[in-house]
């Protein structure tokens, strides 16, 4: 039995590496898009959360609590099945799923950014205010550059999480590693072998990204 598995693994790697490669690119693309747009949206949400408006605060807190408190798979189904109808647009399947992932990511990232901003010494804010800096300039020139140091490594970790989470996209046949795996399973009548390859791919991807985040952390701490 092990000999058969080994032979199949060799076959998969030698003959179907292209499909896996396409899957890897898909996974990386979907993860990157989710985290990049999630970060943009998350930044806005974080700024809103730090504003003085109580109404805005409660709405945004509910938003993050709700998204972090429900399964991603459920959110994907919701966006896939209902969301375009609700807001009256004609989105492709891929767009629906990507929007869902961005929104999911934005909830996590907004918390990362909020915490990163609040971790900046309050004396920095007071110094900027006492000099007569506007709130906007204070945020952009004084607080955010210092918060980045806390935020960037955490967003790197969010990207690593996303690489794994995007495997759920295979439920909707978006081109990623897991979809490739499923396709090969059914077309080649193999069960475990494609999964082994997929597992190795995810592990290597996340390990490499972890290394990058580690390097980034080291670099950012140099200026301390």
């Amino acid at each position: 039995m092990y000999a058969k598995i080994w032979a199949n693994l060799v076959l998969l790697v030698s003959k179907y590496y292209k499909q896996f490669f396409i899957g890897i690119l898909g996974t990386l693309k979907i993860s990157a898009i989710s985290v990049i747009f999630g970060t943009l949206l998350g930044t806005l949400i974080a700024v809103g959360k730090l504003s003085k408006s109580k109404v805005l605060n409660s709405i945004l807190n509910f938003y993050t609590d709700f998204i972090r408190g429900t399964p991603l798979l459920l959110q994907l189904f919701f966006f896939y099945l209902f969301f375009p109808d609700i807001i009256g647009v004609d989105w492709s399947k891929q767009t629906c799923i990507l929007v869902a992932l961005c929104i999911n990511s934005s909830a996590y990232v907004s918390e990362i950014i909020r915490a990163g901003i609040q971790a900046v010494d309050s004396g920095q804010k007071e110094a900027a205010k006492s000099l007569g800096m506007s709130d906007r300039n204070m945020m952009i020139k004084i607080i955010l550059p210092q918060a980045v140091k806390n935020i960037l490594p955490a967003i790197g970790n969010e990207l690593i999480m996303m690489v794994k989470e995007t495997s759920l996209c295979s439920t909707f046949f978006l081109p990623d590693v897991m979809t490739t795996t499923k396709a090969l399973q059914t077309s080649l009548y193999m069960t475990v072998e494609p999964l082994i390859i997929a597992g190795l791919i995810y592990f290597v991807l996340t390990s490499l990204l972890s290394k990058c985040v580690g390097l980034l952390e080291k670099r950012l701490s140099v200026s301390d």
Binding site: G123, A127, S130, G132, M133, Q146
Partner: peptide
Amino acid sequence: IDKHRQKIGMVFQHFNVFPH
């Protein structure tokens, strides 16, 4: 208040210089 604070300098116990 920002405009008026520009005319009121302040020095803090913990310096609060901008490290970046």
